[in-house]
Write a protein that binds this DNA or RNA. Structure first.
Lengths: 211, 211, 211, 211
DNA sequence: ACTTAAACGAGACGGTACGTCGAGTCTTACC
DNA sequence: GGTAAGACTCGACGTACCGTCTCGTTTAAGT
C-alpha cells in the first residue's frame, strides 16, 4: 500500500529531523510565518533542502510536526500542566469543576503569552485557515484531543449531577475554548487570567438573571 | 507643500479601484489566499501593478478593502441580516433576546457557508493571525463594530433586567461569537443553525444544573 | 509571426546586455565552461537571473553572443588583422597567395594562444559538438563567413590562373583550416607559426614528389 | 604498504564494469552528453553510484573507457578498417598510397555516420575540448595511435620515393585527418566518400597549378 | 567448508545550480 | 500626474544531480 516513491524511513537521520524541527520552531518565532522559508530552515539546521522536501510536503507540515516536539521533551521542567501540547495529559479533577476549568484556562492564557508557543500557534492557525487539509490535520492531531479532555471532564461532572442533562457537551467545550481563542486570535481584548475566570463563571452560570 | 511621495487621491481612477477590489475578491475565492498574487490581481483587473502598489501596501490590504465592498452594495438582496460586513447595520431588537441572538447567529452561520464570503474571510483571518498590524486593522474595521452591536443589544437587555448585573458584557459577547468562529475556523464540528441555537441557549442559561 | 511570449526588445536594457556578455566572457576564461553557471554570470553582471533567461535560452547561447562582442569593439587597438571574429574583415590580397595565407593562419595561431579567445572558443566548440542547433548557429554565424573569405581569396587566385581548374575550393579551404583546428583542439602537436607555414606550403604544393 | 584508499581491483566485478560501460554508451546516444548523468548510468546498469565513483573519477572517464569497448569486440564484423577505435589495427598497404588513404578515410566517413559511434565521439570531443586532462588522455589513448598509423604508412611511402623528402609527415597526417574532422565536427559541409577522395587527391597533388 | 573483509546494490545525506515565479521598483508611452 | 505595460533586481521556490556516506548483502580469497 506504500506510495510509489516513499523514502525508506528506517534509514532516516534522527539528527537531521530534530535539527529541522528545532530550526523551524526557532525561526518562526524570529521572523514570522510569512517570512519563514524552507531555505532558511535548511540552512539553520545545517541540512540540505532536499532532506526537508523528502520528508515533508511544505513548511506548514514541518511546523505541524515541530509543534509536537514541545509535548515530547524539551521544555518539560514542571510536572504535569503541559496541556497545550495536550496529547497524553489528563485533565485535572479535584472535584471542583469551576476550579479545574479555571486552572486549565489560566494555563492556556499563559501559553498564549509564551513567545515560543505563540508564534508557531499563530502560524499553524493561519496555515490551517487557508489550507483545509493542513487545518484538518492540525485539528485532529492537537486540537481535537485537547477538546476531548475537556469533554471528558464535563461528562464526569454531568455524571455527578453537576451539569444539566440536556446540555450539549461539545457546545459547552467550545463555549470555554472558543472565546479565549477568539480574543487571542483577533486581539479583541486583553487575554488575562481574569478573563479566563469570568469566562468560566459565566459559562457555568449563564448570563440571564437567576430566578 | 506636497510630499515627494503622497499620491494625489483626487485624481485616482475609481474605475481601477473597483476593478482591483473585485478581481481580488474573485481570485481569492478561486485560487485561495496563498496562491493569490498581486500580478494576477493586476492582470485580471486590467491594471498595471504599480497602480496597486501606489494605493495599497500589500495584497492583504487590498483584500481588507475588498471585504468592505460587500457591505456597500453588490449582494444586498435581503433586508437586514448582513451582519458580517456589519458596518451600518443595526442589531434586531424584538424584545426577545434569545430569538434576536439566534436570528443573528443563524445568519452568521449562513454567511460562513457562502463561498463568496468564506474565502476572503479565511484569507483575512490567516493574514491577520500572522501580521499584527493587519490583524489590528481588520479587527478595528470590521470585527469590533460588529461586536459592539452585540454588546449594545446585551446592554439594553440588562437595562431591562434580563441579564445579571455582574455579567461582563464583553465576555458575554465573546461567548456568543467565539465558539461559532472557533468551530468554523478549526472545523471542530458542523456549523449549523442547531449549533447556533444550542449555543445561545447554553450561553443564556449556563450549563450547571438549575436548582 | 511573433512567438507567444516574446519580450519587447525595444525596451531591453543595453546596459544589462553588455554586462552579461562581458561577465560571461570573463568567467568562462576564469573557471572554464563546465563550471560556468548562469547564476555566476548574473551575479558578476549585477543582474537578475531572469534577465538572462528572458533573452537567452542557455548559457551556451549567451557565450555565442558574447563571442560576437569581440568583433564589435572592445579590444580593437590595431588596424585590420582581427580575422578571428572575422565578420566584416576582408582577406588580405597582396598578390602573393602563399604569403597571404600564411599571414592569416599565423594570426589564427596567435589567437589560439590568446586566453581571452581560447576559453570561449573551446567552450563554444564543446557546446556545439554536442548541441546540433547551437553548433549550426555557431558555424553559420562565425565559421562559415570566415571560411567564405578564404574561399573568395582562393577563387581570385584561380581566376589569376594560380590554382588548378579542377580543385574543389571548399575542400581546399578545409585543408588549410582543418589541420590547424584539429591540432589546436586535440593537442596533437605544437600550434606554432612554423606549423602554419609548413601547412600552407604543403597544401599548395602537395606532398607527392614533384615530377 | 597498501594505501588507505586504493580499491582492490582483483575483486572488481567484471559484470558491473561492463554493465556500466554499456549503459553509458547507450545513454549518451539517447540523451546526449550534457544530460547524461552518473545516476542514470548507475540506474540503467543496475549498479550503485558508489561503484562508479570507486573506479572512475568522472562521467567523462567512464565514457573514455566505454569508447574502448568498441574496439574490443561487439560490432567487429568486418575485417580490417576499424581505424576509429584503432588500437591494434594496421594500416592497409597495397602499394597504392592514394587508394590506401581513400580506403581508410572512406571508412572513417562511414563511422562518422554510425550513430553508435558519433554520439560518444562528439561527447568525448566536447569533454576533451574543455577539460585538458581528459582531452590529453583521449588523444593519447585513441587519437595519437591512429595518427601514428597514418604517419607510418606515409613514411613507408617516402622510403619508396613517393613523397618529397622535405615533407613534414606530422603535418601531412593532419592535412588528411583534420579537414575530415573539421567538417564533421562543425558541419561545414557534407561528410561523404566524395569529400574523402577529393581530399586525398588534393593533399597528395597540392592545389597550385602544375607547371 | 568456513571465515571474513572488501566490493556491491541501494539510497539518504549536505550541497550547488537549475529554470520558474512573484515581489516590489523603475522606466516608457499614453492620456 | 495617474495609468497600462512590462523590464528590471532580488530572493525563494521545488527539482535534479553531484559526490560522500552509511547501510545490509553478496562474493570470493585465504584459511
Amino acid at each position: 500500500m506504500a506510495s510509489t516513491k516513499a523514502p525508506d524511513s528506517s534509514r532516516r537521520s534522527e539528527r537531521s529531523r530534530r535539527a529541522i524541527l528545532e530550526a523551524a520552531l526557532a525561526l518562526v518565532g524570529e521572523v514570522g510565518y510569512d517570512k519563514l522559508t524552507v531555505e532558511s530552515i535548511a540552512s539553520r539546521a545545517g541540512v540540505g533542502k532536499q532532506t526537508i522536501y523528502r520528508w515533508w510536503p511544505s513548511k506548514a507540515a514541518v511546523l505541524l510536526d515541530a509543534a509536537g516536539v514541545f509535548a515530547e521533551s524539551p521544555p518539560a521542567e514542571d510536572g504535569g500542566a503541559e496541556d497545550g501540547g495536550a496529547v497524553a495529559a489528563v485533565f485535572p479533577d479535584t472535584g471542583d469543576l469551576a476550579a479545574d476549568l479555571k486552572l486549565v484556562l489560566r494555563a492556556t492564557v499563559d501559553e498564549f503569552h509564551d513567545a515560543r508557543v505563540e508564534a508557531p500557534m499563530r502560524a499553524l492557525t493561519a496555515a490551517g485557515a487557508t489550507d483545509p487539509e493542513l487545518g484538518r490535520t492540525f485539528t485532529e492531531r492537537y486540537l481535537a484531543p485537547a477538546l476531548g479532555l475537556y469533554e471528558e471532564r464535563l461528562r464526569v461532572a454531568r455524571e455527578r449531577g453537576e451539569i444539566g442533562e440536556d446540555v450539549d457537551l461539545r457546545v459547552a467545550v467550545e463555549m470555554l475554548v472558543g472565546p479565549l481563542h477568539h480574543r487571542w486570535l483577533h486581539r479583541t481584548g486583553p487575554v488575562t487570567h481574569e478573563f479566563a475566570e469570568a469566562l468560566v463563571n459565566q459559562v457555568l452560570g449563564g448570563i440571564v438573571r437567576g430566578t
